[in-house]
């Protein structure tokens, strides 16, 4: 259950850092998608009436933010787990992070298509 006293590989620490690096990589994609929204011409028809700025590009920006929140939550949970013990990640955590990245991929495609 508990981590061995001597862990020459610093396994949990390396794994936590790998998760954080992944989150940082995701934020880089976010920045480009948000930039795409901010530099786009405001569309005449809003998706949600009454919310200024929320055109389809704005929706992409929101989706990117949502993917970031999901992955950040996974990283937070996993980091806490790794502080307690070096157990394998549950399949659900890994699946949720995969789906967040795939959702971000869909959002990126939408942002590219809208920006053209």
């Amino acid at each position: 259950m508990s981590v061995e006293a001597r862990d020459p590989g610093l396994q949990p620490e390396r794994t936590t850092l790998a998760w954080r690096r992944t989150l940082i990589s995701l934020v880089v994609v976010d920045l480009f998608i948000w930039r795409s929204w901010l530099t786009s011409e405001p569309a005449a028809g809003n998706v949600v009436p009454g919310v200024p700025g929320l055109d389809y590009q704005g929706l992409c920006a929101l989706m990117a933010a949502a993917a970031t929140v999901v992955l950040a939550a996974v990283v937070w949970v996993r980091s806490r787990q790794l502080q307690v013990g070096s157990h394998a990640a549950s399949a659900r955590l890994v699946l949720v992070s995969t789906l967040a990245v795939m959702g971000l991929g869909g959002t990126a495609i939408a942002a590219i298509a809208l920006g053209g």
Partner: peptide
């Protein structure tokens, strides 16, 4: 666990 974490 080392192999699990390496896989992760």
């Amino acid at each position: 666990y080392r192999f699990s974490l390496a896989n992760e």
